[in-house]
Amino acid sequence: MLEELQRLQAHIGVLKTRLAHYESENDALAEDKNAANEQHHTQIVQKNGIITKKQEEIETLTEQLAESRTQFQQLNNDATALADRYSRLEKSCTDLKNRFQEILAERNELRLMKEKLQNEQRQAQTNIQSLEKERERLLQKNEHAKAKVEAIIQRLSVLGTAQDHHAQEIQQLEHPADANEEV
């Protein structure tokens, strides 16, 4: 019996050791559980924060989508207006092109007229030059004739005849300014 008692005491000692071991394991597991619960609670709070942020982002994106749709509609309206303006500008461009071609045709006509007038001007200048030369020639001829008449008059005045008196009268008639100065 003593042996049994010793064996029971040994079993009780082993059981106490095991109990202490299980209690320490239980405490460690309880601490792990508490830590896991705290970590889980922290994760839940973080996830809730993330969910809240995502919901806010969804609301912001929804507002942006509504604004984008409004802008898209405005851009469609602007595109329609621009298309109308473009078609009007194209028509104006065609009109301007036609007008430009008309102006080019008028310019070509004016060039031809200018060339014709320049040719006529050259011919007129040539005629003027030939007329001026003819005038010079006639003036020289006139001067030459005048000189001959004056020489004849001088010869007659030198002769001193009765005809000389007539020559003086002729000379006075030819040069009335000289006669006025003598008087």
Rank of each mutant, 00 (worst) to 15 (best):
L156P: 02
I128A: 12
I153N: 00
N108P: 01
L138Y: 04
A151Y: 00
I152E: 04
E115D: 12
K91R: 05
Q168Y: 05
R88E: 10
H144V: 05
E67N: 13
S87G: 03
E106G: 02
E143Y: 10
L117M: 07
E115L: 11
E136K: 09
Q163W: 05
A79C: 05
Q74V: 00
N142K: 12
S87M: 08
L65F: 02
Q168T: 06
L110S: 07
L139A: 01
R111Q: 15
E109L: 10
E120A: 05
Y86K: 11
A151D: 06
I153R: 02
E102S: 10
T70F: 02
K114T: 13
S157M: 15
A124F: 11
K133P: 00
T126R: 05
E67V: 08
Q168H: 13
Q154V: 03
Q168P: 01
Q140W: 12
R88L: 10
Q64T: 08
N98K: 08
Q74K: 08
Q140S: 11
R107M: 10
E106Q: 14
T126G: 06
R85K: 14
A151F: 02
N108T: 15
L131Y: 13
L104Y: 01
Y86W: 12
L65H: 04
N142S: 07
K148C: 08
S87W: 14
I152N: 04
F100R: 14
E143Q: 11
N98Q: 11
N108W: 06
S157G: 04
Y86V: 09
R99P: 01
Q74H: 02
S157F: 04
I152V: 09
I128Y: 13
H166F: 09
K91V: 09
Q64S: 11
E102N: 14
N77P: 01
L156R: 08
E143S: 07
N76Y: 01
M113T: 14
A66I: 03
L131W: 11
Q74M: 00
A81S: 06
F100H: 15
Q140G: 11
Q123P: 00
S157P: 01
E109S: 10
A162G: 04
T94D: 09
A79G: 04
R69H: 09
T126C: 03
R135Y: 10
E143P: 02
D84I: 11
Q168L: 07
T94I: 07
V149T: 06
A66K: 12
A167I: 06
T94M: 04
L104D: 15
A145N: 12
Q140V: 08
K97C: 06
M113R: 15
N98F: 03
C93A: 14
H144P: 00
